[in-house]
Nucleic acid binder design. Structure first.
Length: 416
DNA sequence: TCTGGGGTCCTAGGACCC
DNA sequence: TCTGGGGTCCTAGGACCC
């Protein structure tokens, strides 16, 4: 038996742990640059704020209902996520961390799911302050659906393919199923498939022919046949990227080079943190999707002679890429750098046999930089090419402190 | 005025091999 | 006029996820 446990309105819940005054109030957490609402409390959802709503479009609601607006604080969410997952790993033998706020669990079929679910939810709430929902089922896809029901009802739930649950399945729109996105939803509806029950009772061979193996699998999973197993070991990443929208458009080459240097700096740091090196770097820049008359997308792919996670090399290559495609008439609004074709840093490739002595000594600098930054915060020491903070930095006007990861911003409690 | 960031998997088609 | 059969690898693009 599978279970999906999921933190309720995760980012908002993290904020509420340290801001109890936000309980029972409508709260939203914004994306980078305070652009869109990426997390909403139940109260905010009830006010009709959709996921991803741009802040400027909902200003009137924020004002009218005194919605509490917060900038994103990923340091906090990442740390809270680790705490929740650690607890799960202590409590269950088989845990697959699926995302920042979700995990799949696997249990013996004979467990009392209601009891087990309530126990876990209580325990997590007590240890971290984060409320969760939990759904059980004979497959991952059904456990996901049961989790939806758990969210609505506030208790542990179970769903399977048998007759006893057909009414539940008939009440679930096909778009809510894991793996059915907007395109598939539209197409399925055109073929008369509206609910989870409809999809479950569709011919798998047709699904394979008409769509692909993923849809076929989803359909079989709905029918109680487990096609997706738990991945207990965290596979190493296949790509790592840093992309950001700029808070204001940039048309100046030197500024763009500084920005991409910062992204390259973070990318190299991430690569080292996951003990990986990259063989290929992809850099792109584009104008605004919303404002510009003509979409512009500039990009360059750089294939390296040998895999690297060296800050200086990555920054140099990224800046060369930006120089090569830079066009002074374009107002750049978003930049990104991506490392693809990753290798295990601890398993040197034959190509690395030929790097110069000079280059092979460089990682020491990165090591020192990483250890200082680990202690005092990323960016405390950084290459000169990253420049000083200027206008294009991320806008975060409503950010809460890093309560759990920075000594300077720990919460103070006064006892009388 | 103002619109997020970071991933994965699958498939079709082209290039190339013998 | 008529031009094999079988295979692998790579890439771009589409769709999905949170």
């Amino acid at each position: 038996m599978f279970a999906l446990i999921d933190c309720n309105n995760f980012f908002v819940s993290c904020e509420r742990v340290f801001r109890p005054d936000l309980e029972n109030k409508p709260v939203i957490v914004l994306s980078n640059n305070d652009g869109c609402a990426i997390a909403r409390s139940n109260e905010a959802k009830l006010l009709g704020i959709p996921m991803g709503a741009p802040l400027f479009e909902i200003r009137h609601l924020v004002k009218a209902y005194d919605i509490q607006v917060l900038s994103c604080n990923f340091e906090l969410y990442g740390d809270m996520s680790r705490r929740v997952m650690n607890i799960l790993q202590q409590e269950c033998e088989k845990v697959e961390v699926y995302s920042v706020d979700e995990a799949f669990l696997e249990f013996n079929d004979s467990i009392n799911w209601a009891e087990e679910g309530d126990r876990l939810r209580k325990h997590i709430l007590q240890c971290t302050g984060i409320p969760t929902s939990i759904g059980f089922g004979p497959t991952k896809t059904l456990a996901k659906l049961a989790n939806l029901e758990s969210k609505v009802r506030g208790i542990s739930c179970y769903i399977d393919h048998t007759k006893a649950y057909h009414d539940n399945l008939k009440a679930i729109p096909v778009a809510k199923i894991w793996g059915i996105g907007t395109r598939l939803n539209k197409s399925l509806k055109e073929h008369g498939v509206y609910t989870a029950y409809d999809l479950m009772t569709t011919d798998p061979a047709w699904a394979r022919r008409k769509y692909n193996v993923i849809v076929e699998r989803t359909l079989r999973e709905l029918g109680g046949i487990s096609c997706l197993s738990l991945s207990l070991i965290q596979e190493s990443k296949k790509s790592i990227q840093i992309t950001r929208s700029l808070s204001e458009p940039v048309q100046d080459l030197e500024t763009l080079k500084q920005i991409i240097a910062r992204y390259g700096f973070r990318l190299a740091h991430k690569l080292r943190a996951s003990s990986q090196k990259t063989m290929t770097i992809w850099v792109y820049a584009r104008n605004s999707r919303y404002r510009s008359e003509k979409p512009v997308f500039h990009q360059q792919t750089i294939v390296l002679a040998a895999p690297t996670n060296d800050t200086t090399s990555i920054i140099t290559l990224a800046q060369q890429a930006v120089e090569s495609f830079f066009d002074p008439t374009v107002a750049y609004h978003k930049l990104g750098i991506m490392a693809i074709d990753l290798r295990d840093a601890n398993a040197p490739s034959a190509k690395e046999l030929f790097v110069s002595v000079n280059q092979s000594r460089k990682p020491d600098i990165d090591k020192v930089m990483d250890s200082i930054n680990q202690r005092f915060g990323l960016g405390t020491v950084r290459p000169l090419s990253c420049g000083q903070s200027v206008g294009w930095m991320n806008k975060r006007d409503h950010k809460t402190p890093a309560y759990t990861t920075n000594w300077k911003t720990l919460v103070e409690v006064k006892a009388k």
